[in-house]
């Protein structure tokens, strides 16, 4: 990301990109858990004795975590050239890291709890 990118209106989207991913993860987990339970996909059928719903939830969760890691990497390696861009980059990084922690925290129960009980 260039310095100029931090000064465009789209920089606002960059600021909230991490939490947009968090929101996407949250909505996807909740929706797919409901759909999976409605379609009775909670029986052990997948690898390692996992049921299909849990498997889908874990994949969704990991994909979002990977997206956040990529976002942090891209933001971190950018080099802002003035104070405004530097501010946007710093706040973006705080937000992306906290979104990563929030996604880890909200999603990790999919590893331990049955989806439909």
């Amino acid at each position: 990301m260039s310095a100029a990118a931090f000064l465009r209106p789209r920089a606002l989207l960059g600021l909230i990109a991490g939490y947009l991913i968090w929101a996407s993860c949250f909505v996807s987990l909740y929706t797919l858990q409901s759909v999976g339970c409605a379609l009775a996909l909670d029986l052990p059928a997948g690898p390692f004795g996992l049921n299909a719903t849990t498997l889908v939830l874990v994949i969704i969760w990991l994909l979002h975590l990977a997206g956040l890691a990529l976002l942090i990497h891209r933001t971190h390696r950018s080099h802002p050239e003035n104070e405004h861009a530097s501010f946007m980059r710093r706040v973006s990084l705080i937000l992306h890291f906290s979104a990563l922690a929030a996604t880890l925290w909200v999603g990790f129960p999919v590893l331990f709890l049955p989806p439909c009980a």
């Binding site: 909740y30 858990q33 909200v106 129960p109 999919v110 049955p114 989806p115």
Partner: peptide, 10 residues
Amino acid sequence: PHLALVFFSA
């Protein structure tokens, strides 16, 4: 379901 409750509790 408990799992959904945990999402929101977290």
